[in-house]
């Protein structure tokens, strides 16, 4: 599959909607690395990351009709598909048995999954620049997919505080990205 052609984003979307194999090849070559990196940050394990990445691209191909360019960029849409697939995988029984992840309900005040380690690349590396309380909330909501309510209950922090902290943390993340 030749992928020498360079697509503008709208061209790529149009080609994908007409089920153009070549466009898919380009999409994969261009974005698989970035999505793989995010998937690995959520699931860690390499073989599981492979499964998740595979599921992600199959879903992108199947659901391209659902992509709405007025709601955001193609990459953002794909990123959310990848992240959701990865989080779903961490919720599966097989994954929980094979990993050290603790359910959030068992955590007390000492909860801290975000430790510096081999996983600090990409967004995670930026996360370490945030304050501990912010970092924890981003990890729980972004990387582990917990809702604000779940986080509020588990950490015994008022829901309003969870919301404010997540927002504050995220606006700092934006500054860090620039």
């Amino acid at each position: 599959m030749g992928t020498k052609q360079i697509y503008e984003e709208w061209e790529l979307v149009t080609a994908l909607r007409s089920k153009d194999d070549q466009a898919f090849g380009y999409l994969y070559d261009h974005y698989s690395g970035a999505l793989y990196s995010v998937v690995k940050q959520v699931v860690g394990d390499t073989e599981i990351s492979n499964d998740v990445l595979q599921e992600t691209f199959v879903n992108i191909w199947r659901k391209i009709e659902l992509y709405d360019e007025t709601k955001g960029r193609l990459f953002t849409w794909m990123l959310n598909i990848a992240r959701n697939a990865a989080i779903d995988k961490t919720r599966s029984k097989g994954f929980q048995q094979s990993s050290k992840l603790q359910p959030i309900s068992e955590t007390d005040g000492t909860y801290a999954t975000v430790k510096p380690g081999i996983d600090d690349y990409g967004l995670k590396r930026l996360l370490f620049k945030l304050k501990e309380e912010h970092r924890l909330l981003i990890d729980l909501s972004y990387y582990q997919g917990y809702t604000h309510e779940q986080i509020s209950k588990a950490l015994a922090i008022p829901l309003g505080t969870v919301k404010t902290r997540i927002r504050t943390a995220l606006s700092q993340l934006r500054t860090l990205l620039q």
């Binding site: 698989s32 690395g33 970035a34 793989y36 990196s37 995010v38 690995k40 990351s49 492979n50 990445l53 990459f75 990123l79 690349y121 990409g122 967004l123 590396r125």
Partner: peptide, 8 residues
């Protein structure tokens, strides 16, 4: 994220 890509 593109900068942090890891080749699958």
């Amino acid at each position: 994220l593109m900068q942090d890509a890891i080749q699958p």
